[in-house]
């Protein structure tokens, strides 16, 4: 799937350290992001956001004239866009507060450039989906919006559970998702004892997405651990 359109998103970066701002701008630029504005204080951030209308904000928590949590609340009053906290405050309470206020992610300094880019891209992908994203697999395509599989021109409907399981796998495409995480995605917070049901659902999903379900190439079993969805262009 092509995500080039995400590189055009307007990003507001707020941190009181000029050198850190330069670093993050440089990391984002290298990955293709061009529309980036920076601010060093809460008031500056508010002024910039009024004219700039950002589509993603990366905020520090400790700022000279206030804190990032309050800033996020004020920014979100005018427009609802994703917020990523990038801060040296790594306490659980701070993280919970950030997430509780509606942050989309929380990163603790120091960080690797790759990690920052991975998270920024993931937030943008989640927040700005294309109209009808078709996910290409080896033998089929998934249309999550219509909850169906397109295989050899045939449209096969997904059940709600199959959709939930596939969505959880797709969010982590190329990575193993544990049996427990998949059960939680399909059956909620208390997913004890659904392992056999999950296996049955996986079998049915394979019948829908694989050319040869007994030798799967898109939905791979990682014995005892979980499953992995292999997407063609990811």
């Amino acid at each position: 799937m092509n995500y080039d359109y995400l590189k055009q998103k307007r990003i507001l970066l707020v941190d009181d350290e000029q050198e850190l701002l330069s670093l993050v701008v440089s990391i984002l630029n290298e990955d293709g992001f061009q529309n980036i504005k920076t601010a060093k204080t809460v008031s500056e951030a508010i002024t910039v956001s009024e004219t700039y209308q950002p589509e993603l904000a990366i905020l520090d928590v400790m700022l000279p004239d206030g804190n990032g949590f309050d800033l996020m609340e004020r920014l979100k009053k005018t427009a609802d866009y994703p917020v990523l906290f990038l801060t040296a405050r790594g306490e659980d309470d701070d993280k919970f507060r950030g997430f509780g206020l509606g942050a989309d992610d929380y990163m603790v300094k120091p960080f690797l450039p790759k990690e920052l880019l991975f998270r920024v891209n993931a937030i943008l992908r989640r927040s700005y989906k294309t109209e009808n994203p078709l996910v290409k697999l080896h033998d089929s395509e998934i249309d999550f919006a219509r909850a169906e599989i397109i295989k050899n021109g045939e449209h096969i409907l997904l059940t709600a559970k199959e959709h939930d399981i596939l969505a959880a796998l797709y969010r982590n495409a190329g990575r193993i998702v544990t049996i427990d995480a998949l059960c939680e995605a399909a059956w909620g917070d208390n997913p004890f004892g659904y392992e056999n049901s999950l296996m049955a659902h996986i079998r049915r999903i394979r019948e829908k997405i694989e050319a040869n379900p007994s030798q799967p190439v898109s939905l791979i079993t990682m014995k005892g651990l979980g499953y992995k969805l292999v997407v063609e262009d990811k």
Binding site: E17, E19, L20, L23, V24, I27, A88, G90, V108, K109, P110, F111, L112, P113
Partner: peptide, 11 residues
């Protein structure tokens, strides 16, 4: 206090 300078080194 070490986190921010280390971010620069690491980044």
């Amino acid at each position: 206090d070490i986190r921010t300078p280390l971010s620069m080194v690491m980044g």
